[in-house]
């Protein structure tokens, strides 16, 4: 069973996604602390990362991952206003990254995970 780590500061969102992924047959776990997330990332097959977080932002996490040369597949999700713009911008710095709108999780997350873990 593929293990997925969720870094998300909103417990409701984190819990909902964890529920959804479990339903779809994944071993999902979440952490509200971004730094702790990065530390334990090694044991996971995929990282689901929220972009906008008050303490340590998703961008800072991405930077740290790049710095540590961690190659775990990445899906960034956000409730940010302009998903197309943000997605493009992120892919420029982190090729292979998939960006999903929070409101489109139900329809887009599973296909994205499947394609990344293929």
């Amino acid at each position: 069973m593929k293990r997925i780590l969720i870094i998300e500061d909103e417990p409701d969102v984190a819990e909902s996604i964890k529920m959804f992924l479990k339903k779809e047959g994944y071993d999902a776990e979440y952490t509200l602390d971004a730094i702790a997330g990065v530390e334990k990332l090694k044991g996971f097959d995929l990282l689901l990362l929220d972009l906008i977080m008050p303490k340590v932002s998703g961008r800072a996490v991405l930077k740290e991952i790049k710095k540590r040369k961690i190659t775990t597949p990445l899906i960034v999700f956000s409730a940010v206003g302009l998903p197309v713009v943000v997605g493009e911008e992120l892919r420029r710095d982190y090729p292979g990254l998939v960006f999903i709108q929070k409101t489109e999780i139900y329809s887009e997350l599973i296909p994205a995970i499947k394609s990344l873990l293929k």
Partner: peptide, 14 residues
């Protein structure tokens, strides 16, 4: 929008 969309995303997902 972020504040609105975040709870909305939870509602929609469920």
């Amino acid at each position: 929008t972020h504040e609105l969309k975040t709870p909305l995303s939870v509602i929609l997902l469920h």
